[in-house]
Design a protein around this nucleic acid. Structure first.
Lengths: 151, 151
DNA sequence: ATCCATGCAAATGTTTTGCACAGCT
DNA sequence: AGCTGTGCAAAACATTTGCATGGAT
């Protein structure tokens, strides 16, 4: 649960101007639970329907879209399905062409480097919302974790 | 056309270990023509079928997949369809949430900055193939170009 | 009470697949 | 001949839509 209560969730939903319906709350909750999986609408629906048999797949689609629209959630690069990610601290993604996994890559130093770079840039006719780094490659051993160290 | 002849294309296809069939050649050619549009399989098919009525959509799908597999072409973040991009010099993408456009962002200084950053990183169990920067935001005026200047 | 969100199911859009045939070596 | 790639059409999969009903403020 990671310390995010329903009250918190309700507040976050209301904060972006959406009504805090039960469906929106449990879908957001589900996104938090499935955070590491960068789930599809279908996956959110599957996780939800045991505890909430009434929920409809169409609603999950519509709700995820409205979350993205409201900037509560982001879409991520994926293998032909729409995948979603709760909007936490800035981070990049590692995409493994071998296992098709999308793995979060959180690296404040890199985020700062890139953010600073863009601070000195002036965009005309463009409202910059977000910069993120995509890392593409493949795991040598699909069953092992990736680890990273500075030289 | 940009100075890439069929002989060049043939060579690039053979270089990655694929047979240079006519379909592969014209699909690759089409990707070069449509480069700015980051086309879907369907869009490639549409562009092709006038000049080559025999070509099949299924073949376009299969061929694009094999190009990606062979690292001749990249997939790009998109609005729920698979979009493709010929593998030219390193560049990022600007995604406009307003118009859903994907616009190339070529910035050698940024590419160097990021590449250098990752040179000093040591990945274990991961073969890094590519790092790219995604910029997300929205055009103020959908009909105008974005321009960028350093401060 | 009003308005917007939801559930349902049908429609649409996208991608994958299997198989028979064609083309290259 | 033997391989692999292609075309076709069906199947599978993913997303969107319209509308009647339900729920939040």
């Amino acid at each position: 649960m990671a310390g995010t209560t329903r009250t918190d969730i309700r507040a976050r939903i209301v904060a972006v101007g959406l009504k805090a319906t039960l469906q929106r709350i449990i879908i957001f909750e589900s996104l938090l639970n499935l955070h590491d999986a960068h789930p599809t609408a279908e996956e959110v629906f599957q996780q939800l329907k045991t505890a909430h048999p009434g929920i409809s797949l169409g609603t999950v689609y519509k709700t995820l879209d409205s979350f993205v629209e409201a900037n509560l959630v982001k879409r991520v690069l994926s293998d032909s399905k729409r995948r979603f990610d709760v909007n936490e601290q800035p981070h990049g993604h590692i995409y493994c062409t071998n296992t098709k996994e999308i793995i979060d890559y959180t690296d404040p130093e890199l985020e700062k480097l890139v953010a600073d770079y863009f601070k000195a840039k002036n965009f005309r006719n463009f409202n910059l919302q977000q910069v993120s780094v995509q890392i593409i490659g493949s795991k040598s051993d699909p069953n092992e974790q990736i680890s990273i160290s500075s030289i």
